[in-house]
Design a protein around this nucleic acid. Structure first.
Length: 496
RNA sequence: GCGGCUAUAGCUCAAUGGUAGAGCACCGGGUUGUGGUCCCGGCCACGAGAGUUCGAUCCUCUCUAGUCGCCCCA
């Protein structure tokens, strides 16, 4: 409620209010557990390679800024600043804020580091977390991760198109089909004309407006356009559209941007009702949505959005006429969309290559050296040194879906050998410990060579299994010919 | 910030006005150095507080959290 109130360090009444036995998460914040890492790594690596191919450079930004930065940029009246900002007075007496968004930071950095002296536009990207004290909901957290793209120093509409195109390519690369909703806000001047026109229109129908919408008329008239109040649909359909009020220059700018989008075959729809919450936007604005969300809750959920903000850099004291265009894409929501699109890590990729089993102290010690060789050889290796029995160790190997197991006991240590066990077939062979790494590498490579059909089958099973499925028991055939099976006959297909 | 719904073990779920069970998971066993099945044993819960009652996990209220809708947004 009272926003921007310094969080004075008071003598914790909150403590007494809630005494829980175990510590817990702060509301709206969350842990990203190991099962989910793959999605995060994937998003970040696609972001990284995509930006590299478009020659955008990464910038890392601080979590804290002066609160005034966001008040000046987003607009003092905006909700982000009014009620969602984590702002407080730091011990030195400065009024600071945990950043609620990235564009203002980038603009600040651009000005502060004199990037205006670099070839324009300056193209930057970031992958950072932001903080908004909003009510948690599906796909909404108080700490959110954004992948941001910003191009500062050009007013050319091709930049508008390029940012939108990159947004589309980003999602395509991730396996999520998206569509962009696009609109133009024109210049502040043309927008002003439009707003008074819009107000005029809605004033005529004032009796049909809900209380909420009446409030919007006073506070943020553009928001009337995405009101979901009953009866507003027809009213909105008859409302004047901003595109008709753009001055000739703005209109030309927007048309140009759309032409470029067409040329690049970026799927988009014109959405005359699209508006954005922050004051600094001008001209092209857009939001990204899943193309065909299966899930209801995904429907109204923007994965990301952005737009042109020609006014921002000058507003913060930078050079006049510094045009800029950017996008902020929500990583948390993007991951939700990936899951709904059936994008999962292949079960095969989750398997550990080698599991090392040891029997006795001598073997354990030797195991460390073997580990090192395997690691240098590029394979992943797991162990359970804390377990005593071989049975227990093999159980763990099985749970980890290890491809191969190594067994080193007293006897092998004395002989200078080691047992290699194929965990899929159960075949074992005794090999010279010096040659084992080469052998393992060849076996792992063989196991990784799945046919396309098998990969498709695995992917389908993953999809079936839902979110982060347990590795399905796929029997991939090419088991290496067993050389020295000292194994009584086992049922090969014990599982199905 | 406002409104609806929800809250039982790590997970998915039961039952009950007299203080709780299962499956999965986890730990340990089923004799000497071999996994996926099976068998046996073990560990772990009524979100927090107050009220009604002889007695509450169950009824009431408050809080907290989750979820959905609104506001807003990624």
């Amino acid at each position: 409620m009272p926003t921007n109130k310094p969080a004075v360090p008071v003598a914790a009444p909150a403590e007494t209010k809630k005494k829980s036995k175990t510590p817990e998460l702060v509301r709206g914040f969350r842990d990203v557990l190991p099962d989910e890492q793959w999605f995060w790594d994937r998003v970040e690596s696609v972001a990284s390679s995509l930006t590299k191919s478009y020659s955008f450079n990464r910038i890392r930004l601080p979590v804290l800024e002066f609160a005034s930065l966001f008040e000046r940029s987003a607009g003092k009246e905006s909700d982000v600043v009014q009620k969602e900002m984590y702002s407080f007075e730091d011990p030195g007496g400065d009024r600071v804020a945990m950043r609620p968004e990235g564009t203002a930071q980038v603009a600040r950095a651009y000005i502060e580091h004199g990037m205006v002296n670099q070839p324009q536009p300056v193209k930057l990207w970031y992958f950072e977390q932001f903080f908004r004290h909003d009510r948690p909901q599906f796909g909404r957290y108080r700490q959110l991760q954004q992948f941001g793209l910003e191009a500062l120093g050009s007013i050319d509409p091709i930049i508008d198109a390029q940012i939108m195109l990159m947004t589309h390519r980003f999602y395509r690369e991730l396996g999520v089909e998206v569509i962009l909703h696009v609109n133009s806000l024109g210049t502040p001047a043309s927008r002003k004309d439009y707003i008074s026109e819009l107000l005029g229109y809605f004033k005529q129908h004032k009796n049909k407006l809900s209380e909420l919408d009446k409030k919007r008329m006073l506070k943020n008239p553009l928001r009337l356009l995405d009101s979901k109040e009953p009866g507003m649909a027809e009213l909105k359909a008859g409302a004047p559209q901003i595109i008709d009020y753009l001055d000739a220059e703005s209109k030309a700018h927007f048309m140009k941007a759309l032409e470029y989008l067409d040329e690049a075959e970026v799927p988009y729809v014109l959405d005359p009702h699209l508006v954005r919450g922050l004051d600094y936007y001008t001209h092209s604005i857009f939001e990204v949505y899943m193309q065909n969300p299966k899930n209801e809750e995904m429907k109204g959920l923007a994965l990301g959005g952005g737009g042109r903000y020609d006014g921002l850099v000058p507003m913060l004291g930078g050079r006049e006429n510094t045009g800029a265009m950017g996008a902020g894409l929500g990583v948390d929501r993007t991951i939700l969309a990936m899951k709904q699109s059936g994008v999962f890590q292949l079960a095969e990729e989750r398997r550990v290559d080698i599991f090392f089993c040891q029997l006795g102290e001598a073997a354990r010690r030797k195991g460390l050296a073997v580990f090192e060789k395997i690691r240098v050889g590029g394979m992943s290796c797991a162990e359970a040194f804390g377990k005593g029995s071989l049975k227990a160790q093999l159980e763990v190997a099985d749970k980890l879906k290890a491809k191969m197991a190594l067994i080193l006991g007293q006897k092998e240590v004395l002989d200078g050998t080691i047992i290699v066990r194929d965990m899929d077939s159960g075949a074992q062979e005794i090999v010279d410990v010096e040659k084992v790494v080469g052998l393992l590498a060849r076996r792992v490579v063989a196991k990784n060579k799945l046919s396309l059909v098998e990969k498709t089958a695995i992917a389908a099973e993953n999809l079936e299994a839902g979110i982060v499925p347990v590795a399905p028991e796929v029997k991939k055939a090419p088991a290496p010919k067993p050389i020295a099976p000292i194994q009584k006959k086992r049922k090969l297909f014990g599982r199905h």
